[in-house]
Amino acid sequence: MTRVAMTVNGKAVTGEVEGRTLLSSFLREDLHLTGTHVGCDTSQCGACVVHVNGQAVKACTMFAAEAEGADVTTIEGMANADGSLGTIQQAFQDFHGLQCGFCTPGMVMSAAALLKENPTPTEAEVRAYLEGNICRCTGYHNIVKAILAASGQSVPAVAAE
């Protein structure tokens, strides 16, 4: 076992992990932050996306030991300080950007990474950025609308409604 220390959602945390412990397992099973979802475990669905040192990564495809000393943000860190939904989360609710909600944590974390890099993306840029986030329910249009709205842009009539 290896001792790891990192900051998760602004709080210093430590834990004992095996070499093979995935960051997703450490977050969910050791820290009980079960908002980070594991949809595929084959690095393809993006439900497990978190930020490590500000960058979107798939938590199922990174060892917890690799996050030693890192600053990690999960979906639990996206709410406002008073517990109300953050801007992107609220936009997902307002624009019906989720149905079952399984993909939503990863969608929100990818959206947050996109808006940090590119505060006013085009619709095409939003779609391209979500390449690694799969949703089985929504057909994506409302997710794209929610992200455009969260960026403060007026939401165009998205095609194929």
């Binding site: 979107a56 990564v57 798939k58 990174m62 990818s110 390449e131 690694g132």
Partner: peptide
Amino acid sequence: IGDPAVRNR
């Protein structure tokens, strides 16, 4: 290559 999360690692 891949998607943004893959490219970050």
